[in-house]
Nucleic acid binder design. Structure first.
Lengths: 233, 233
DNA sequence: ACCTGAACACCGTTCAAGT
DNA sequence: ACCTGAACACCGTTCAAGT
């Protein structure tokens, strides 16, 4: 499984001794490279959604033959892995550390995470089923250390992290997928209304219409953090 | 868009005046019917996962030609919608209502929901992107009315419901997807260990190994409910 | 070292046709 | 009313070959 240099440590060919300008653009960079492939994949996903990412279409966008990708990337799965982690990049200088209020830190951390995923609406639903890349791990580490420094007992640390992770993932997936068109939502609520004797509470509260996603996210997050605060020593 | 009877109200052909036993099994039921298609789809999904569900394979399992499905079902999307809602069936007699403790009720409701989705590991990730069928709406209604009866203010009701929904979805998706093989998890944790200077906290807490999913789920749920209890009037 | 086209075994869905 | 096969426009990936 290691004949090809498509392994994890390969950063793509170096631009130094570029050979003889092969038919593509003439900026020193070779026409295909892992970073370029990943960046283009993210663009394609942003534009066309998960189902829009096709090896052939991706190659097309890169001005390459369909099969050329496989020298760099081994798999479509791998493309997803790399695109996801690349979409979750975060400011290298974690200025979040050591604020006065650890709750503030956690909230800011997770809200940034959420905003980042909402900017790439395909990312949230992909996250739980992918290998954890360095950016994802970096975010988890930042969260862990913040909570740990805040005094969360070691025994409760993992439960706290996973609870927050699960909540952020769930909220973001829901929002990215339900927040489609207003028409869809009205249609859904109207189906409920048509059966108001079966779903009286939902009908009365207009659950499927009203959706202050940002507010709801923040409220639930506060609940969780309140609970976690209890576990500090 | 309405020539075919594949619309929402069509429950499949009635078995009453069955005609002349067409080449299939000789139990009164017609060889193809919406309920049978949906049930088989659920089986197929359980056995082969989301990617395993193929119109052709589904038809195969039903002993029918590949295209026969389209008379009953209009779409592959629709198959997913129906299979999902069918997997989320719940006891028609909601004995949950009117216990002494509303918190107990909510917990039982959501734990049953989660167990139900874990029994069909493909369901959780499908849920957020699908139309809400009667079973899903029924569960939402039950949750809503329980919270409402518990005294949650109308202004906070929807936020409470969505918070719980998001949390359950997130937790279940994470669990269904991360809980794969032990090998995977050890490999993941070892990658972290190899970079222990970058992820010291995660390494120390063994986040990627230890995963008491059930316990974590319950703890986070309690946090949320605690927070919601605050909002009662 | 890097890229390519032809080919294989699949997809979902349309359509015109069978009973 | 219900089912079908052929056909179309796609997929991901292998392989043997090009430079």
């Amino acid at each position: 499984m290691a004949e090809k240099p498509s392994g994890t440590e390969n950063k793509g060919p170096r631009r130094a001794r570029a050979p003889l300008q092969s038919a593509q653009e003439r900026n020193g960079e070779p026409p295909l490279s892992l970073p370029r492939i990943v960046a283009t994949a993210v663009d394609l996903l942003d534009a066309e959604g998960v189902d829009g990412l096709t090896m052939r279409r991706l190659a097309d966008r890169l001005g390459a033959g369909a099969m050329s990708l496989y020298w760099h990337v081994e798999n479509k799965e791998k493309v997803f892995d790399l695109a996801l982690d690349s979409a979750l990049q975060y400011p290298a200088s974690p200025q979040v550390a050591d604020t006065l209020d650890w709750r503030e830190d956690v909230v800011r951390l997770l809200e940034d995470w959420r905003v980042c995923m909402l900017r790439h609406p395909w990312s949230a639903s992909l996250l739980p089923r992918r290998a954890l890349g360095p950016n994802i791990l970096g975010r988890l580490e930042l969260l862990s250390s913040t909570l740990s420094r805040a005094g969360v007992a070691d025994a409760d640390l993992n439960a706290a992290i996973w609870s927050l992770w699960n909540y952020v993932i769930g909220a973001t997936i829901t929002r990215a997928n339900f927040d489609r068109t207003d028409d869809d939502r009205t249609a859904a609520q109207q189906r409920v209304t048509g059966l108001s004797e079966r779903y009286p509470t939902i009908e009365r509260s207009r659950l499927l219409l009203d959706s202050d996603w940002d507010g709801t996210f923040r409220k639930g997050l506060d609940f969780l953090i309140d609970g976690i605060a209890t576990k500090r020593e």
